[in-house]
């Protein structure tokens, strides 16, 4: 599990890096199909080996923000006798957004990767 401790530099690197990647991860996960909040938390935790372990107070406002931006849509679904769940899925706009975000992500990884490779520790 990722540590949340402040680094000796005074900058919380884990948080700063995660902040930029959370929305992309959410869109990428939802590109596989509709999912509800608790499921998203579990799947993100599993696929990232615990690196992204969201609390509900982080996930749901982020989902609502993406929905308000038109990148996600939601629907309430009751399966069998279970409790109703709010499922989120990508809109067409969301798919376009993910495509753009991934292109930018790859560009960033490549460009920053070059700079990082040159680092002398």
């Amino acid at each position: 599990m990722a540590k949340k401790d402040k680094a000796t530099s005074g900058i919380e690197w884990t948080r700063e890096l995660k902040k930029g990647s959370l929305q992309v991860c959410l869109l990428a996960l939802l590109s596989q199909g509709r999912k509800y909040g608790f499921q998203i938390i579990k799947e993100l935790r599993e696929t990232t080996d615990g690196y992204i372990d969201l609390k509900e107070g982080t996930l749901y406002p982020a989902l609502h923000r993406l929905e308000k931006a038109g990148l996600l849509k939601s629907e309430w679904v009751t399966e069998g006798t279970g409790n109703p769940r709010k499922y989120y899925s990508l809109t067409l706009e969301g798919r376009k957004g993910l495509k753009e975000a991934l292109a930018e992500w790859n560009r960033m990884v490549e460009s920053c990767g070059n700079a990082i490779k040159e680092a002398k520790l």
Binding site: Y36, F38, K55, E56, G57, Y60, W76, N83, R85, K86
Partner: peptide
């Protein structure tokens, strides 16, 4: 409603009493 659904899912997924207590303890302020 969404938070209620989340709590229900979290509790259903918690195998022990201790884990259930943790669900409530970790809810956002």
């Amino acid at each position: 409603s969404e938070l209620r659904s989340h709590i229900e899912d979290s509790l259903a997924d918690a195998p022990t009493q201790e884990a259930k207590e943790k669900v409530f303890a970790e809810l956002e302020e």
